[in-house]
Design a protein around this nucleic acid. Sequence first.
DNA 1: TAGCTGAGTTCGAAAATCGAACGCAAGGGA
DNA 2: TCCCTTGCGTTCGATTTTCGAACTCAGCTA
Lengths: 147, 147
Amino acid sequence: MPYSSFASMPCTLSRPAALLGERWTLLLLRQIFLGTRRFEDFQATMDISRSVLTDRLNVLLQENVLKRVPYHEDGRTRHEYRLTEKGRDLYPVLMALRTWGEKWMAPDEEESFHLHHRDCGGGVRAKVECTECAAELTARDVQVAKQ
Amino acid sequence: MPYSSFASMPCTLSRPAALLGERWTLLLLRQIFLGTRRFEDFQATMDISRSVLTDRLNVLLQENVLKRVPYHEDGRTRHEYRLTEKGRDLYPVLMALRTWGEKWMAPDEEESFHLHHRDCGGGVRAKVECTECAAELTARDVQVAKQ
DNA sequence: TAGCTGAGTTCGAAAATCGAACGCAAGGGA
DNA sequence: TCCCTTGCGTTCGATTTTCGAACTCAGCTA
């Protein structure tokens, strides 16, 4: 049972965890949410090796998290990588990571970037809530039922 | 600038992403949230190689996500791995992964486990909200400010 | 005394990653 | 026309990680 078998287990947690748990994939998604879209820009800003970058982009294309979109520059047609709706839906995952990072791994100095709600200027945080009563939940409030 | 340099960048997203983005780490945390605590049990249920398991547990101990707690069995003292408060605070990350998995990677058959709020029996989901106006936010509602 | 168990450690083989060079197609300039 | 540049990969040999099986070790147990 190798690592990749978690990607095909009938578990809605192990499948995303196996996909995003590959080295570089979370950092790549971070870069995408920060606005990077082109191969050269990923390579330059992350200093990832080109072959691994190719591989990770292809995996995310295959999983339909990203799509290749043509664009024009200097009269030439090229392609850039953009989030699909499925990809955009990963936003809460990244925000949960960031919320945790702010609480537990905040560097001494200033942040490298701030996020705020366009409409009201407020801050941004991830949370877990009950779909019925809308209470905020921690691990202790949740019961696991096998099968 | 190797992979590990993201773990020390002054960015509250890249640091957690680099830590949890190592192979096996997310799957290991999933197993821990499901209740596994002992070396042998991790090894048996995940079929991870023993040396990598040792390494990942040590990294999480060092980051203070896990702690080693002594327990007694058959009159012998052993240790088990348990979440610290910092570790328990990763719950929203795992729930965000699961919420995404339920929407986009749900297997045809039944889930391997269900989660529900102890108090009211409702479902569980992760979301992103504004700290001021409490509106639910998507990537489009959020503005990134450099520095 | 010998065997068992939990929790690792060790080590040679296999796989993943790295970095530097190479390939290639489509302009642009001389 | 020929050469140069750019963006986006591919290839390849060297280095790192991971794998899997065997080994270690301490403290019971038979």
